[in-house]
């Protein structure tokens, strides 16, 4: 388990990088972004001491989905490999439980966002079927439009 130190705005990993470890923050803060450092930079989440990030791609053996950047000078993160994580089940079940809770919570939140988006689309279609006018650019669809537009760039 190696500890790495990062300065403010230093990139820890980038979208599409291979996921070889997960990270536990010992001090400082880490921001997760889409398109970090570009004009469409979008903040997704911030993590602090005790938080774990990068676990999903490690467990799924898939490329990183977003960019991770240190937000403070002297940000220290501990790297945890897949083998070390497997040992955690026996040695530190509390840590594994916390990670499972975190992933489960994110599934729930993402499912909610997904259903809200589907509902907004459904309402738009039903409004038109009733003969009323509604625009794909209207307010209730705007948050999804903005995300869709960012994805197209």
């Amino acid at each position: 388990m190696e500890t790495k130190r990062f300065d403010k705005n230093e990139v820890i990993f980038r979208r599409a990088d291979l996921a070889m470890t997960m990270y536990e923050i010992e001090s400082g803060a880490v921001g997760i972004y889409a398109w970090y450092g570009t004009e469409t930079e979008t903040h997704i989440a911030t993590f602090g001491p005790g938080d774990v990030f990068g676990e999903v791609e490690l467990i799924e053996s898939c490329p990183r989905a977003a960019d991770a950047v240190a937000l403070e000078d002297g940000t220290e993160v501990r790297e945890i490999s897949r083998e070390e994580f497997a040992d955690c089940f026996q040695d530190q079940p509390e840590k594994v439980l916390a990670i499972m809770r975190q992933v489960s919570r994110r599934v729930r939140e993402t499912t909610r966002s997904y259903l809200e988006a589907c509902r907004a689309v459904c309402e738009k279609v039903e409004t038109e079927e009733r003969g009323e006018k509604d625009s794909w650019l209207s307010e209730h669809l705007s948050i999804f439009y903005k995300i869709g537009r960012l994805l197209k760039k």
């Binding site: 994110r106 599934v107 993402t110 689309v121 869709g148």
Partner: peptide
């Protein structure tokens, strides 16, 4: 989580 995220982003693309 990955699948639901992809489904959500696909809806956003469709709206756009």
């Amino acid at each position: 989580l990955r699948k639901t995220t992809q489904d959500y982003l696909n809806v956003c693309r469709t709206v756009y």
